[in-house]
Design a binder for these strands. Structure first.
Lengths: 116, 116
DNA sequence: GATGCCAGTTACCTAAAGGATGCCAGATAT
DNA sequence: ATATCTGGCATCCTTTAGGTAACTGGCATC
């Protein structure tokens, strides 16, 4: 009976939330793509050039996934040839502080590694 | 000559920092494990029970990787049988705000998904 | 009229991540 | 005495992420 420890349940809950986030932004590329798009790269090739090393196939797949998760918006303009524009959604903005934290940590970590 | 756009370089730099972070905490399990350990689960089996669904093999591998990245500390006590204790390092604390942001976002995202 | 740009798609392949199962040895609990 | 706990390791297998390369079809440019 005293086996039930409420804080263990709370920790488990936190871990589940964390895993929900990881599920959406998993992989090498999703967050870098979001940053690139958010910073104004709206065209497919521009994004590809910003995110060093990504191939067209992977970028195409990742953009689709991000669109499904409502983080980016894809608009096609009926020009000739058709123009495609990617933008980040307002929902994507809710990720901003998290991403900024990750960028800051990465910078700090990089400096730290170089010191060794 | 006017091809060089300084803010493009800055964006590229940010993306690189982000990728450095992703490199350290990549995969399904590393951050959940860190949370579990940080919250006081110091024994192997306790961690395994906290991080739902992880197998001993994967946990063992991930703990080694985290130890190599100086995020967790492994101590063996010379009892019989030997007791093994995992704790988070002080360096790991620098990840805290980032992780808290991720947990918060995951919670919010989960609620948002359920509304649909 | 050949080349290159755009926004991708398709097919194929490899490496790595992750999962399933079984095992060990000493100790404690039933 | 036997069942279970500890901290893992070894083996085998499946899945998936990601990479390579080639191609498309309209338009513009050289």
């Amino acid at each position: 009976m005293p086996d039930i420890q409420p804080d263990k349940a709370a920790v488990a809950q936190q871990i589940r939330h964390l895993q929900d986030t990881l599920y959406v932004v998993n992989g090498k590329w999703k967050l870098p793509i979001l940053v690139a798009v958010h910073q104004g790269n709206s065209r497919f090739r521009d994004i590809q050039r910003s995110v060093q090393g990504i191939t067209t196939k992977v970028l195409s797949m990742e953009l689709k996934a991000l669109e499904q998760n409502k983080l980016v918006v894809r608009k096609v303009y009926d020009t000739s040839p058709p123009t495609v524009e990617y933008t980040t959604s307002s929902y994507c903005d809710t990720l901003q502080t998290m991403i900024l934290e990750m960028i800051a940590w990465g910078k700090n970590h990089h400096d730290r590694i170089r010191e060794e």
